[in-house]
């Protein structure tokens, strides 16, 4: 098969892996093995693979708190991700960050962020580095529709356009900022027009069509690399609640049922079959492989060991510089007999 033919299938595989991973994150929580319940699933948003596949090695990115899918799209090891979500030593951040603060320098992941919009200016800073070093890299910010109402986004867009930086802003519009539907938080929903008003190239794409997303993203990433920053909005639907404890009582069940019909994974699967790029046996095998891989990631995370307590004092500051002093050491220095006059 040619590259043109295999690429959509590879994208489907990544989407299926994301879906399976997120389902296992839910299971991790139900088994009481996750570090807390602040787990934000990206089910329904898998078409973001169209953007991650348009990036190349060396490109960097930041994500919002719902960023598992983006990271898998950029090549994350699901076992290390799951271990981090479980708060284990073997996780990407040694159990310090968790689901909302996962990062990996090697894969260009400059960090997931739990402050809405908090990681967006970092890609503009990365773009400044790439411009100054003439490195040819691109940096991409992934965020949700909630961040569309944050001021830092517009400061970032303005500076990116002003300095012609190699950056792309990717809004995964899942229609909800926590419990508030997007039409209850913005007076005008044509968000790409906002980006264009700052001088970015803006686009809005159907979030059930990963190939359309990929096509648009490819052009925008190329533009960004040439110094014309862009904005892409993926029109999606958040299948489940805000976080694991949220059953979305604020949503109309009918709306939810309709929204879940807008399934990017199911849609991509059907299109591959229709286009003759894969038969049912191929697709079933991909699905089964993803399930097996993510089952293993889940078990790996459950079995992995917790970080040693003393590690909590590591990495507050760089290695080789003084770290904060444990409280007991201070108390002993004050109260022990040898310390008194």
């Amino acid at each position: 098969m040619t590259q043109t033919n295999t690429a959509p299938l590879a994208r489907y595989r990544t989407m299926r892996r994301i879906r399976s991973f997120e389902e296992r994150v839910g299971e991790l929580f139900l088994r009481g093995a996750s570090a807390g319940s602040m787990l934000h699933l990206s089910i329904g948003e898998e078409a973001v693979v169209g953007v991650t596949a348009a990036m190349t090695e060396g490109d960097s990115f930041t994500t919002h708190h719902r960023g598992h899918g983006v990271f898998i799209g950029r090549g994350a090891d699901p076992a290390r991700m799951m271990a981090e979500i479980a708060g284990k030593e073997a996780g990407y951040c040694r159990g310090k960050g968790g689901s909302m603060h996962i990062a990996d320098r090697a894969l260009g992941h400059l960090g997931a962020n739990a402050i809405v919009g908090g990681g967006i200016p970092h890609i503009v800073g990365a773009g400044l580095t790439y411009r100054n070093l003439r490195s040819g890299q691109v940096s991409v910010a992934f965020f949700g529709d909630g961040a569309m109402q944050q001021g830092i986004l517009y400061e970032s867009m303005n500076m990116a356009a002003l300095w012609h930086l190699p950056v792309l802003f990717c809004c995964i519009n899942n229609q909800y900022g926590m419990g508030t539907r997007v039409d209850r938080s913005a007076g005008k929903l044509a968000f790409s027009e906002r980006a264009e008003a700052f001088g970015l190239t803006g686009a809005r794409v159907d979030g059930t069509n990963v190939e359309a997303v990929h096509q648009v993203a490819t052009a925008l990433v190329a533009g960004a690399r040439a110094g014309q920053p862009g904005y892409i909005e993926i029109d999606a639907y958040r299948f489940y609640g805000h976080a694991r404890m949220d059953k979305s009582p604020y949503r109309d069940p009918e709306e939810e049922a309709e929204g879940r019909l807008r399934d990017p994974v199911v849609t991509a699967r059907a299109r591959l079959a229709v286009a003759g790029l894969a038969d049912e046996a191929d697709l079933a095998r991909i699905d089964a492989e993803a399930a097996t891989e993510m089952d293993a990631a889940l078990e790996y995370a459950v079995e992995a060991v917790a970080p040693p307590l003393a590690s909590m004092f590591e990495d507050v500051y760089a290695p080789g510089t003084a770290q904060p002093r444990p409280q007991r050491d201070r108390l002993a220095a004050i109260l022990s007999e040898g310390s008194r006059a």
């Binding site: 400059l110 970092h122 800073g125 990365a126 580095t129 790439y130 100054n132 830092i152 303005n158 500076m159």
Partner: peptide, 26 residues
């Protein structure tokens, strides 16, 4: 002007951009 950068009046953006630049090698 690439090393001495006049920024717009966007204090959060200025510090945020500095964070990102610091993360990536500047």
């Amino acid at each position: 002007a690439e090393r001495v950068i006049d920024a717009p009046i966007s204090e959060p953006g200025i510090v945020g951009v500095a964070v990102g630049a610091a993360m990536t090698g500047l």
